[in-house]
């Protein structure tokens, strides 16, 4: 048993002694809090909900599960908490479900769990319920097996007076992005393709940045984290939901030089690269400069800048997202189609 104890086996999911050990030595050890420690079937929250509760749920699948700048545990907290923040909510509690593949190193699992706990603490949320299941390894021979998937849900309360929504963008608003695009996507693809670089995932909790905007009276019409599908996809969603046109300025789109080169080599476009710690805020134009300054004073908003503006729906193409290019032309920006794979052509 000693050797097997280092890796996840079906026994860890069977509900017997191995399961209990895993609960105690890995999850209990790092997630411990008054609510979770009661080990009940459900968490009774000491929470008198005065404001409207906001709920969000997400699933996390990433290979490799540990990468420069984060891991799947940190990612799951950031992703879930950021979704609540984008709604103008104060995040309070998280639940998480782990699906472990046979063969996963328990030491790896513990690192992921510890990182998840640390991220939750930093975000000011409590993990109040959880579950674990073990599945047969689905890995193909070259992929090593031992994977790990996480499902997470979060709940929080809506801040007073805050009603940012993807359908609230208005003509005359400015589009502000919190920083450089594409870091997470480039980091993960590099790891998968064996490309050496020091590009780190931007995986981060955006609370400091959103708090700074809302606490200082910025009338934020829309907030969105720029995750899967990238900026192009997110802006198309907003344009459709708000029934507006979006016009970006090419020279203002911030991309790290290393990521730009990575995209050049792989034939990728930073506008469609996923991020895990970037957001856009759409605010009245007259507040844009102040919003940028407030964001820049936070760790997760240091490279914030105005990248475009919201216009009336255009006659021919109501919800167009377009970009003014360096040579003075216009490029249409569509939502990502397909998977955003490296290409040679």
């Amino acid at each position: 048993m000693k050797e097997n104890a280092k890796k996840i086996t079906q026994a860890h999911g069977a509900g017997g002694r191995d399961s209990a050990e895993l609960m105690r030595d890995v999850f209990g050890k790092h997630f411990s809090n008054n609510i979770l420690d009661k080990l009940e079937d459900g968490a009774v929250l000491p929470w008198n909900v005065a404001a409207r509760p906001v709920v969000s749920t997400d699933s996390f699948v990433v290979k490799p599960i540990e990468f420069r700048g984060g891991d799947i545990g940190k990612l799951s907290v950031c992703g879930t908490v950021n979704d609540l923040l984008m709604m103008g909510a104060i995040p309070k509690y998280l639940t998480c479900g782990f699906v472990l593949e046979e063969g996963l190193e328990i030491a790896t699992l513990e690192r992921v769990v510890a990182s998840m706990a640390a991220t939750a603490r930093a975000a000011g949320v409590l993990i109040v319920a959880g579950d674990t299941k073990v599945i047969e390894s689905s890995a193909k021979a070259n992929e090593g097996g031992g994977g790990l998937l996480i499902g997470a849900s979060g709940i929080g309360s809506l801040r007073d007076g805050a009603t940012p929504s993807a359908s609230n963008a208005r003509p005359g608003d400015a589009v502000v992005v919190s920083g450089n695009l594409g870091d997470h996507h480039a980091c993960i693809l590099s790891a998968r393709m064996g490309i050496e670089n020091d590009i780190a995932s931007d995986c981060a909790i955006l609370r400091e940045t959103t708090d700074s905007l809302l606490d200082n009276g910025i009338d934020v019409h829309v907030m969105r984290d720029v995750t899967r599908g990238g900026l192009g996809t997110v802006l198309n969603e907003i344009a459709a939901l708000s029934d507006v046109t979006v016009e970006l300025s090419e020279i203002d789109i911030p991309v790290n030089a290393g990521v730009a080169a990575f995209c050049g080599v792989m034939g990728l476009d930073p506008l469609y690269m996923g991020n895990e710690g970037k957001m856009i805020a759409i605010v009245p134009k007259e507040q844009a400069a102040r919003a940028v300054n407030l964001m820049r004073a936070t760790d997760t908003g240091r490279n914030a800048r105005v990248i475009g503006e919201i216009l009336l729906p255009s006659e021919r193409d109501r919800n167009l997202v377009a970009m003014k290019t360096k040579v003075g032309g216009t490029r249409r920006i569509n939502a990502l189609f397909g998977e955003g794979l490296p290409r040679i052509c």
Partner: peptide, 8 residues
């Protein structure tokens, strides 16, 4: 070969 920090 180094492409602005990406070594391939």
């Amino acid at each position: 070969v180094d492409f602005n920090g990406n070594v391939i």
